[in-house]
């Protein structure tokens, strides 16, 4: 895969959504998962959420995606409630969720209407898999499947891309490739990105801002203004990583 050439944010995406979470509570039955959580995300910002397993990261993402409803509190996109906003959010999961009965191209085109083939092919090309367009997903490697899933999420020209540990099932090298690809596409398309990860290094590499969730609330909210592309060996990144890990371990 090509190393991204475009390293400063070149695009201002007018559609990129600004998200405002106000005093969100979320419980499942007796169990409180999110507790009075508030967060603001700027339009076009790349926010990474870290936290221990079961801390409510996926739940937060699903709330923003509109897949779950908050028990109380309010989420707005560009100051409109989720339901009224026309912004298009798409989501990538840890598993690719490619439909095994559709070819790669038809998976990317899922839900598109009209003359979608060109656009789907272009997007597949962006992730470097155009030559695989007529194959069945099950014949692709895990990393390739995730790239197709990324293409499927991007072809909708999302104003918000939600990523729930999309890289955690990949090997280290493939993961680094994918991190670069996601960063490149974010830079060139300018959508707002909200990524959940277990990997603190991944967080400091990609994030404009890193959020740590513990006990249902945000306990750390760090801006990361380092120039892109960031090397894992950058002293400032290493220090940031250390600080976050220490905080996670303490609790």
């Amino acid at each position: 895969m090509g190393v991204p050439s475009l390293m400063e944010k070149a695009v201002i995406n007018d559609e990129a959504v600004q998200i405002h979470l106000q005093q969100i509570d979320k419980s499942f039955g007796e169990k409180t998962v999110l507790n009075n959580l508030s967060l603001e995300i700027e339009s076009g910002e790349f926010v990474v959420i870290v936290g221990k397993s079961g801390s409510g990261k996926s739940t937060l993402l699903r709330l923003v995606a509109g897949l779950e409803e908050a028990t109380s509190g309010q989420i707005t996109f560009n100051d409109k409630s989720i339901k009224d906003s026309k912004s298009s959010a798409t989501m990538m999961y840890q598993d690719s969720r490619l439909l095994p009965w559709k070819t790669v191209l038809n998976n990317v085109g899922l839900g598109l209407k009209g003359n979608w083939k060109d656009q789907a092919e272009k997007t597949l090309d962006l992730v470097g898999l155009l030559s695989f367009k007529d194959q069945w997903p099950s014949t692709l490697s895990g990393g390739q499947q995730q790239r197709v899933a990324l293409a499927r999420a991007l072809v909708h020209k999302p104003s918000l891309l939600l990523l729930d540990e999309p890289l955690s099932a990949l090997d280290a090298l493939t993961r680094m490739d994918m991190q670069n690809l996601i960063e490149k596409l974010w830079l060139s398309q300018g959508f707002t990105a909200l990524l959940v990860t277990h990997d603190v290094r991944e967080a400091v590499k990609l994030a404009d801002r890193i959020i740590l969730i513990e006990d249902g609330d945000i306990t750390l909210n760090i801006k990361n203004t380092g120039k892109r592309p960031r090397e894992f060996s950058d002293v400032s990144l290493v220090q940031m990583e250390k600080k976050i890990l220490e905080k996670i371990m303490k609790s």
């Binding site: 995606a65 897949l67 959010a89 798409t90 989501m91 999961y93 598993d95 969720r97 439909l99 009965w101 559709k102 899922l110 839900g111 499927r152 909708h156």
Partner: peptide, 24 residues
């Protein structure tokens, strides 16, 4: 997960049935 994903990409009703439920 397929159904949720399909809905997220705007499939509902007949389209959801034809693209996901029936082939599945």
């Amino acid at each position: 997960g397929f159904i949720e994903m399909g809905k997220m990409y705007g499939l509902k009703g007949w389209a959801l049935f034809k693209e996901i439920l029936l082939p599945g």
